[in-house]
């Protein structure tokens, strides 16, 4: 049997009645100068402890008790087995050492989540996204660059037709069910480049066509881009960015300002480039395609070297970072060439 002091509020007026609360057996007795009440312990709810704030006990009938006798209320709480989870939370909150542990855990969890969690969720979400959505995303993204970053192709109609038939060959062999389209464009600003949008729209610049020393090299590039499409790399990238924006929202606690960051997502889709993992995966697709059709990955390797060479040339000074570099989605060339060589040896 324990007794503690409290203030009693009847919920009808703002009057505070000083009372003594006694817990005996299964009942709670509230005794004050004008108050005498008995309540079953099943009819009370103890609000979770929070810092050094007054403890609050609610009665089912609408009244409320407030007490600063922390020991007594904690004992009552314990005997009722109430608020186990929140008592643990309170324990964390009370200790600077545990808070430090939480802080470290928070940083590790965030890094881990960005590194593994977000990509995994993004991959799952990308896998179940219907093609019609991919189509909408692609159209909107393509519209935003066609006509300004990309200009009409200067290739002859015959050349264009040849390239289209190469692309048809690639997509029929490995393309799966996507609404493919090869867009031949002159990429004045972005130079020799090729990239794939999520639903299968592949953009290839005249500059890249001219850079290739054979049509097989172009075929290799197209196979690589189809690799990005069938593995849904574009969409996964996009979902990852959305995930990180939302994560930032949790930290900042203000989604509206963070959402502002996210309004340029199609731009993000075009600019961010793929992670190395995605590039290797698409190289696998292209390498496999080449091995099956011509028995060597040499065309892809040569093309990578061509691109690397043109990049060196087009870079007049190291300090000027042009849009070209942002669009280059194919870094780490020597490593990629090595992996392709290894593929062939196997």
């Amino acid at each position: 049997m324990t007794t503690f002091k409290a203030n009693f509020f009847d919920g009808k007026t703002a009057h505070a009645y000083p009372v003594n609360v006694t817990v005996s057996g299964q009942t709670l007795e509230i005794i004050g100068s004008d108050i005498s009440l008995q309540k079953a312990l099943t009819d009370i709810r103890i609000e979770p402890i929070l810092g050094k704030t007054t403890r609050v006990i609610k009665l089912r009938s609408g009244e409320k008790l407030e007490s600063i006798d922390f020991t007594a209320v904690a004992a009552l709480e314990q005997s009722l087995g109430a608020n186990k989870g929140m008592r643990f939370v309170h324990k964390l909150e009370q200790s600077w050492r545990l808070v430090l542990v939480c802080f470290v855990g928070l940083i590790l969890a965030t890094v881990g989540f960005i590194r593994f969690g977000v990509p995994w969720i993004a991959a799952q979400a990308a896998a179940v996204t219907p093609i019609s959505v991919l189509k909408t995303i692609t159209d909107s993204a393509f519209k935003s660059i066609d006509g300004n970053l990309l200009q009409k192709t200067k290739l002859s109609a015959t050349r264009a037709a040849q390239l289209q038939s190469i692309f048809a060959r690639v997509k029929n062999r490995i393309g799966k069910d996507y609404p493919y389209e090869l867009m031949l464009r002159s990429g004045a600003e972005i130079g020799a480049n090729a990239f794939a949008l999520p639903s299968g729209t592949v953009v290839m610049t005249d500059e890249l066509v001219k850079l290739a020393k054979s049509d097989l090299e172009i075929e290799a590039v197209l196979a690589h881009e189809v690799g990005h499409v069938i593995h849904r790399h574009g969409l996964r990238n996009l979902y990852q960015s959305v995930g990180i924006v939302l994560l930032a929202g949790i930290f900042v606690g203000d989604f509206s300002s963070v959402a502002g960051l996210g309004t340029s997502l199609p731009a993000l889709l075009l600019q961010s480039g793929y992670s190395q993992e995605f590039e290797f995966q698409s190289d696998q697709v292209a390498g496999k395609y080449l091995l099956e059709t011509v028995g060597s990955t040499k065309a892809m390797r040569d093309m990578l070297e061509n691109l690397e060479g043109s990049r060196e040339k087009s870079k007049p000074s190291q300090t000027e970072k042009t849009i070209q570099d942002i669009f280059r989605t194919h870094p780490i060339t020597p490593e990629r060439i090595r992996v392709l060589e290894e593929m062939e040896r196997k």
Binding site: L50, G51, L92, E93, C102, F103, L106, T110, F113, I250
Partner: peptide
Amino acid sequence: EYFRIWIVNVFLTII
């Protein structure tokens, strides 16, 4: 006190 509550809040929200 509020700092500690806040850190624990963010930590538990993330995990």
